[in-house]
Amino acid sequence: MAIKTILCIEDDRFIGEMYVRSLKKAGYDVDWVVDGNDGLVTARNKPYDLMLLDVMLPERRGTEILDALKGGAEDLIPHTKVIVLTNFEQDDASRIAMQKHADAYLIKAEITPKRLIEVIHQLDTL
């Protein structure tokens, strides 16, 4: 299943715009929300192929969103792949907990939009 639709949950305007711009140029269909509550609601309402998830978000942390969607008995977004994108230095336990439910865990400062698109292509081939 090729990735086509992407939900970007990112509160930093510059970073959000940068990802959205590049992903749209690369032909993806991108929705962008800036706070955690909206992110959770949007993710549940529409089946995206991929979710880009920040950790330090207003209203609701990325960890909580991931836990609410995938941490329960039932995976609420079974068809959505997840890339955690953060600059935050998480403690080990939370990081490992997130990695369990995510397909990739990346440091934003290390990832340019071009690299991000490469990673998405990689996920496609999995």
């Binding site: 600059n87 990832i111 939009p113």
Partner: peptide, 24 residues
């Protein structure tokens, strides 16, 4: 230091990202 370094990463993300985008 850990906190400050984390804060520095935000702007670097944007600088590196847009440099990449713009050069293309």
């Amino acid at each position: 230091i850990a906190f400050a370094a984390h804060e520095l990463r935000g702007p670097i993300t944007v600088i590196r990202g847009y440099l990449d985008v713009l050069e293309d």
